[in-house]
Design a binder for these strands. Sequence first.
DNA 1: ACCTGAACACCGTTCAAGT
DNA 2: ACCTGAACACCGTTCAAGT
Lengths: 197, 197
Amino acid sequence: MRPRRADVLRAARDLIDNEGLDGLTILALAAAMGVPPDGLPYPSRQALLEGVADELLSALAEPPPAGPWDQRLITLAHRLRRALLSLRDGPRLVAEAAVTDPETMHAARTGMQILVDAGLPPDRAAWTVLAVIQFVVGHTIEEQAPRDDTPAKLAATTGDDAAVELGAALTADPGRRFEFGLALIVDGIRRLFQSPA
Amino acid sequence: MRPRRADVLRAARDLIDNEGLDGLTILALAAAMGVPPDGLPYPSRQALLEGVADELLSALAEPPPAGPWDQRLITLAHRLRRALLSLRDGPRLVAEAAVTDPETMHAARTGMQILVDAGLPPDRAAWTVLAVIQFVVGHTIEEQAPRDDTPAKLAATTGDDAAVELGAALTADPGRRFEFGLALIVDGIRRLFQSPA
DNA sequence: ACCTGAACACCGTTCAAGT
DNA sequence: ACCTGAACACCGTTCAAGT
């Protein structure tokens, strides 16, 4: 009989964690579950990837607790980052599966509500929350990218102060760098509230 | 004899433009050039991808013209966006090849210099320019993602005002949305200059 | 009707066989 | 030494053959 979706998704996550996103193949997954390649409850690899991505982002379902809008937005961004990093190659997966998938849209709606509640016009709130999501996606992609020694080499060969500083930044605690970048955007949003509609 | 790197890169770009990034295969490329699969001047597909990515970003070599730091930084960000969008699946390519590849580092160094010239401490300048790059990467990934009808469907099924607004934002002119998000970050950087070191 | 397992047309990479 | 072209171990997807 066909394995259940929940079990397949769990096995798929295990495969990705152990072998990376490229290691998640229909053949390997089917073999692990003891079924033929077309015995999985997903019609294609793409559909399977969307299933995994959707589950990954389901952690964003509930809105952050009440409080000042900036703290709520920051909490939401942290949750999104956590969700994307909770699985190996997670950012790549979500980027490839679909940035506009239902669960991402759900998170976007939550973020938008936070800003609208705080008094921002709906159109600005939508554009703003999309910018935040794009920063989070870009940041996590860089975070999970295989860290080669290019920055160090570049710094050594050029003897350039700027290159050295960039290398240091790239090897710094990614969490603190994330907060720094997020704070930049939030400061920008603050100005948005002060400027006329 | 082996084809020259420049010719191979041009053929690779053509293949990507016509078939997408997944259509760029060693076999297809070799066939198009009339050489065996191992007759290409790149030892592996990964090396080839890095070559294409590097060339894509070489447009960022020269620093933007002199002027106020915010205008210079905005120009650089626009150039990065243009470069990433100049090839089909460009953002995906760069994200997969390596965010820390030499040419990206070069662009980062240029951006850092702009901020240091304007008086920002080097460590803050490095963190800031990385945040800008991450936003640009995230934004272009979303821009080039296959646009399905999820937002519209979501809006229709939920009858939710927020969903409608998000759908409108996603179908709005991406260039204007990019400028809006970039302006948010630049406003945040402005505050950075005003706050004590 | 359903599960089985092979087959199809690919892929990246390697290698022996010729000149 | 070098170019040739097949072979290797895969991949996603499909399908005929059995029960």
